[in-house]
Write a protein that binds this DNA or RNA. Sequence first.
DNA 1: CTATGGAACGCTTAG
DNA 2: CGTTCCATAG
Length: 807
Amino acid sequence: MSSFDDFDAFEGASLSARAMAARPMPYLDELNPAQRAAVEALDGPVLMLAGAGTGKTKALTARIVHLLNTGRARPNEILSVTFTNKAAREMKNRVSGLLGQAVEGMPWLGTFHSICVKLLRRHAELVGLKSNFTILDTDDQLRLLKQLVQAAGIDDKRWPARQLAGVIDNWKNRALTPDKIPAADAGAYNHRGAELYAQYQVRLRELNAVDFGDLLLHMVVIFQTHEDVLEQYQRWFRYILVDEYQDTNVAQYMWLRLLAQRHRNICCVGDDDQSIYGWRGAEVGNILRFEKDFPGAHVVRLEQNYRSTPHILAAASSVIRGNANRLGKELWTEAQEGEKLRLIGHWDGEEEARWIGEEIESMQGGTRGMRGFSLDDMAILVRASHQMRAFEDRFLTIGLPYRVIGGPRFYERMEIRDAMAYFRLVVSPSDDLAFERVVNTPKRGLGDKAQQTIQQIARANGVPLLDGAALAVEQGAIKGKGAKALGEFVVNIARWGRMMRGTVAVDSDDVLDDLAQPMASTPEVSHIELAQIILDESGYTEMWQNDKTPEAPGRLENLKELVKALESFENIQGFLEHVSLVMDNDSDDGGAKVSIMTLHAAKGLEFPVVFLPGWEDGLFPSQRSMDESGVKGLEEERRLAYVGITRAEEVCTISFAGNRRVFGQWQSQMPSRFVDELPEEHVEVLTPPGLYGGGYGAAASAGMSGGMTPGMESRVASANVYNSPGWKRLQSRQGDRPVSQPKESRNTVIDLQAVSAYTMGERVFHDKFGYGEIVGIEGDKLEIAFDKAGTKKVVSRYICSADDVPF
DNA sequence: CTATGGAACGCTTAG
DNA sequence: CGTTCCATAG
């Protein structure tokens, strides 16, 4: 635990600085002059202003290699931070590629969060934690806050715990501890925010837990209050590199500045036009202020774009020009002209999904004079995750393989979180949140009352809940069948703990004493077997086996996967750590797939073909963002549009729908104001299928003054896209489902006849779930095992025989 | 104590 | 529309 491997000299490794110094540096020849300047300015502060697609990752990785090659630093003396695990992984891979060997030797290349965990484990005691603290996810955090809110006698209907979580998060992003809350924030959360924040931090300490924001906050506090610790790291990290600097919040900024103070060898890469995380505390000001913070900083601009065609680039530039506050950059490219940006409007969201689905299918083979693209080359980027559903539904129906990036993640599923809670409890018996999650899962006859009793006893004795439970059983405070089950539960947790640590039973009735036992060298069973044992003997596996809901088999499948995932870790602890930080689930079974993700998740990625659906005012730009942050919010939305367009290499298609379902209600809306900001000469308007046409170029904006905000004045008045009679008709319609919906697109399922004569085993088709087989019939309700969507009960009129499907 | 159904609420965005 | 939370019956 306390080993300092990451700081030791590299003896065996062939990466010794001296050996490297003699090597040739071919990577330098592959850089353009600006990139090369950024790479070669090794010493002192450097700010790299890198526009989208200008090869900043290339420059950054080359810089790392150059640092090693010139003997400036050893691999473990370079601190290199990113925001996402994906970016960190990519950097590692590219550095290895350039070096021609794996980089085991870069322990300090990672996300802010993962690096802070590492540091905090070493110095946990300085902020009142133990080194084996647990990292709470949003769910745990919320449950904890809810408890505190209720205990404080606050009506959590009027003042939801979510709101408090937001307030606290916001403070942590600004590196504010409870005693530093400014007077201006006194009114937060009904004037009780600061008080509850303080309580929350106390509670976290009692639980030996931290939330995401704490990882940075605690380290900043440690650096500020323990000069010796800070100095040790200041000395060690000779060179610091920061990716996506425009996204740093105050806490991250302070953290970096503290660490960089000594050597001042800090290189920050960023693009103010791609700052899209203002809502979580990112300060574009950090990038604008860099030269003041580090006088004499070397500023390099990367403006040659290697990613997109001129049309795409021009469209993106035109949109971002609508923002007042920017450093200003002009991207240019030598690329061939290529396709114009394509724009299309649709009747409703479903048709939009249908059209994009068809477009994707035809683009695979090459269409309209374009080359053919693989599904892997194509991505759909949405503003809000709920937009994904329409596409998933449609793609499921037509059997188009897709992958959702950053969607509901594997490790957030109920069964996985339950299983993990068992593991957590075995690893740290004092993990009260894990205890609460699984004491009565599977049902052990321990309801609210029993759990309250346990809470009381635990609190009265000042012990964790698990010990409280043990005491409750001993004292007979819990009666009936619950008592026996609870006793078994407690004994089991302790037993699995011993199995994990390989220590033979210690004579003790205090479960926590077991934790104090030193790690034995040879556990009785492998951690993989142990995981399986825990799931089986706890009755958890059985619970799902007995569950007859259609999801149960999938859940068991997921549990199997979970156990399998343990194989790549040395022990359960390591696995838990990984999961709490990484959480992303990149398991991919090979085949080519279209990617669906949010615009935020798309940052840093690129695709030959990009679809940008849902460009409607209120959705994008998001109404909420504009309401809450006014022009600032609108500008951030515009940067998001810029990020979206610049993801595209060859073909970029923007679309919007006149009608959309919101909470089950039909609503109609205007095309996004960003549509108006697209330069006509770089846009081709595709005529949508259906009754109304795209009357592009028609002037005027009468009747559009609905919700004017200050930002709208700047909108380009000329090219008002949808002014055709058909479009105007759409505007006036509200509420109910549009009457004359054009449904003649060829993929539409024709009239769904109400046939009741189905037979078991028959192949059928459902508009939403796709193909399936009938496994049960009850009157007019059919139980159908769908190929892709699981087993569902459906009324027969929504079903047609597979043979009748027109495609 | 659990199972069940109906009301209420929610759709920013992420590690 | 889908999910979650709460009240009531079993």
